[in-house]
Design a protein around this nucleic acid. Structure first.
Lengths: 355, 355
DNA sequence: AACTCCTTTGCAAACGATTTCATTCCAGGC
DNA sequence: GCCTGGAATGAAATCGTTTGCAAAGGAGTT
C-alpha cells in the first residue's frame, strides 16, 4: 500500500505547551533560547515534544519578523561539473549554520533568472546568492525592494553595488593564454563559452584575447569559436574545427568542460596531446587531474567561494545593521600538468590556410 | 557601498488592498483564483501590486492549511555527475508546476539524512523525495508522522511501503556483467561503490556477482574491490589493482564515474582499451559518450526518473485523498560503444597470480 | 517576616495571509 | 418598479509562532 500524505492536524506549540503544563511562550523560548528556561521545565518540554512528535514550523517565524532559515542560490545550471563543488561546499557550510539551501537553475537565461528570484522572494529566503554580476534590472530591483541580503558569486569586480565573492575572470583568461604564449604558441584556437547571459565567459575570452594582442598575435575569426558547456558537444565542435581549419598548435578552452571535450576531440582524430596539440582549461574541476595526460588548467577556488559566500550571507542575515564590505577576490593558480608543451619545431601554415 | 538587506516593513496584502480600495480577501482571490474577481477590480489590484512591489508570502499559507510550494529533495551528493541530470530535470519539472526545490545532501550518511529530513519538515515542504530505499527508521517515522507525501528514487522494489521511482539495480549489475560474460571474459575485476548507506551499489554488486556465479565463474576476493565515487580516486585504486593483482581482461565498474577512473587508469599504465582491457560502466552519465573510445555502459534513465518523481509528488500533493500507486520501474538499456571487446586469445594467468 | 533582586513564566497582542459566511451589486425578467 | 439569482466583494475568524510586558517564583539579606 502506498502511503499517502494526509496531513491531519499536526501537533502545534500549544499542544506541546498543554502537555508539558507550560505556556506556549515557554515552549517557544525552549527552542529559540533554551538557556533562559529552567532545567526542570526544559525536561518536561523535551518529553512532550518527543511524545507528540512536534516539529516546529519555521515558515511561521518569517511572519513575526523572524527568519525562515532558508537561503536561495540561483545558478545557471546544476547539470554540470562547473558549479558542483561550489554548490556542495555552499550547501554544507549553510548546514553548519543551521540553514537550508533553496536552489534554482535558470539555464543561462537571465529573464528566467528574474522569475526565479521572484519565486524565491515569495518563499521569503533570508538571503540570496546569484552567479555572475550581470543581471536584469528587474532582478536587482526585486532584491533591493525586498531588502534581501544578497551576494554575487563567481565573478569579481571591485567597487560594485553588491557584495561579490569570486575571482577575476579576465585574469583567468589571461593566465591561461599567457601560459600558452610563453610556451611559444602562435596559432591558438580560442574555444570559449557562449557569452549571452554569461559575463564569466565573456571576461575570460576578453582576457585571453588581450593577452594575445599584447603578445603581438593576430587572432583571425576562424580561431575564435563558441562552445556549449558540454563535453560531447564541445568535442564535436572542436573536432570539426581541427579537421577543417588547419591545425592550430594549441587550444585555449574557456573552461575545463570544453578542455575535456578538446582532449577527446584530439584523441578521436589521432592528434597527440601535448606533442601535436597543447590544451589548457580553466576551472580545475573534479576529475581534470585524472585525465591522461593530466589537464593543465587555471584552478578556480570553487570550494573557497562556496564557503566564503555561505559565511558572508549568514553574517549579513545575523547582523543586518552592520555594514560589511564583502568583496572577495579569490586567488587563481595555474596548475601545470601534462597537456601543454612548446609547439613542435615544424612551423605550421598560417591560421586559416590549409596545411 | 555594499548594499545590506535591511528588511524594513514590506508591503503586505493589506497595503495592496487599501491602495486598490478593495478588501484583503479580494486581493487574496486575485492571486489564487483570478477568474472570480471582476476585470476592473483585477486591474486596480494589478496596479497596486506593481506600485508597491508586493510579493506575497507563501510561508504564511502553510499556516492556514495551504502549501508552501517547496518540495524537498534529499540526495547523497551533489558534488558529482551521478545525480546531476536527475536533479536538473526534477528541478525544472517542479518549476513547471510552480514549485521550488529545497535540496539537501547527506554525503552517503543515513544518520545525517534523518537530520536533513527533520530540517526539511520544519520548513514544511509539501513533499519529499529521497534517494534509495534504505533509510533509518526515525527518518521514515518522521515522514509518516508529519504526513508528508514522499517518494523514494533511484531504486526500485515492488510492493514496498513507499512510492518508488527508479530502476532495478540488481538488473543493472546483471546486464553489465552479462555483457562482459557474453563476450567471453572469465577474469573480471568487479569495482563497485562503497555499500555502506548505499543500497544502489549493493544491489548492482549483487546482480553482477550473481551473473558471474550463474556463468560458473568463481570471483576471488582480489577481484572485488570497493571504489569511491570519484574519478581520481577510482583511477588510483584501479591502477594499483591492475599493477599488483595480475591483469584481468575486463573491469566491471559499479557506475560510470568508476568506469571513467578505470579508463584513465588503463591509459596511465599503457593498457589499451578495449584491446587489452574491456571496461563497462553503469549510468551513461553526461560525457560518457564523449570518451575515446566511447564508454560501453548501462543507461540509467535519469531524466525520466526526475520527471516522473516531480509529477508523482505534485500529484500526491494536489490530490491528497487519492490513492495513487506510484511504483515506476524505469527500463534500462545496454549502450554498446567502444570499450568492450572479446578478450584476447592469449589466456591470462589465473587471477591472483602474476603475469 | 519583610524586603530586594534576579530568574522564570504567563498573558495577550501581534504577524500576513486564507476562507467561510454574509452581504452587496447588478442585470434581466416580469 | 419590483423581484430574483448569480456574481463579486467584504468582515471577521483562523492558522502557529514570537515577544513585550507584567506577574510570579525563589533565593539571599536584613
Amino acid at each position: 500500500m502506498a502511503r499517502q500524505g494526509k496531513r491531519g492536524r499536526l501537533p502545534g506549540i500549544v499542544d506541546v505547551a498543554n502537555r508539558a503544563k507550560v505556556s506556549p511562550a515557554t515552549v517557544s523560548r525552549y527552542f529559540n533560547d533554551p538557556d533562559i528556561v529552567r532545567y526542570r521545565t526544559r525536561e518536561r518540554i523535551r518529553h512532550a515534544v518527543e511524545e507528540l512528535g512536534y516539529v516546529r514550523n519555521r515558515a511561521v517565524r518569517s511572519m513575526v519578523g523572524g527568519a525562515t532559515g532558508s537561503i536561495g542560490l540561483v545558478i545557471p545550471t546544476i547539470d554540470n561539473a562547473i558549479f558542483s563543488e561550489m554548490l556542495q561546499t555552499f550547501s554544507s557550510a549553510l548546514a553548519t549554520h543551521g540553514r537550508t539551501m533553496l536552489i534554482a537553475a535558470h539555464g543561462y537565461d537571465l529573464a528566467r533568472e528574474a522569475v526565479l528570484v521572484h519565486s524565491l522572494s515569495e518563499q521569503r529566503v533570508d538571503a540570496l546568492a546569484l552567479v555572475g554580476l550581470e543581471h536584469r534590472p528587474e532582478t536587482l530591483v526585486q532584491i533591493e525592494r525586498q531588502g534581501i541580503p544578497a551576494a554575487m558569486l563567481w565573478n569579481y569586480r571591485p567597487g560594485g553595488d553588491w557584495p561579490c565573492i569570486g575571482f577575476d575572470n579576465e585574469l583567468a583568461g589571461r593566465m591561461a593564454a599567457e601560459h600558452l604564449l610563453a610556451l611559444g604558441h602562435r596559432d591558438i584556437l580560442f574555444a570559449t563559452g557562449e557569452e549571452r547571459s554569461n559575463d564569466r565567459a565573456a571576461g575570460r575570452r576578453k582576457g585571453a584575447l588581450e593577452a594575445a594582442r599584447r603578445a603581438g598575435l593576430a587572432v583571425p575569426d576562424g580561431r575564435r569559436i563558441a562552445c556549449p558547456y558540454d563535453i560531447r558537444m564541445s568535442k564535436e565542435t572542436i573536432a570539426r574545427n581541427l579537421e577543417d581549419g588547419g591545425r592550430p598548435t594549441a587550444v585555449f578552452a574557456g573552461n575545463d568542460v570544453i578542455a575535456q571535450g578538446a582532449m577527446f576531440a584530439a584523441a578521436s582524430l589521432g592528434v597527440r596531446v601535448p606533442d601535436d596539440l597543447s590544451i589548457i582549461g580553466i576551472g580545475d574541476f573534479r576529475g581534470s587531474d585524472a585525465f591522461e595526460p593530466g589537464l593543465t588548467t587555471v584552478r578556480i577556488p570553487a570550494r573557497r567561494i562556496g564557503q566564503l559566500a555561505a559565511d558572508a550571507l549568514v553574517e549579513m542575515i545575523d547582523w543586518p545593521e552592520a555594514d560589511f564590505h564583502h568583496e572577495h577576490c579569490c586567488p587563481l593558480e595555474l596548475i601545470v600538468r601534462g597537456t601543454c608543451n612548446a609547439p613542435g619545431r615544424l612551423l605550421r601554415s598560417a591560421p586559416g590556410g590549409n596545411a
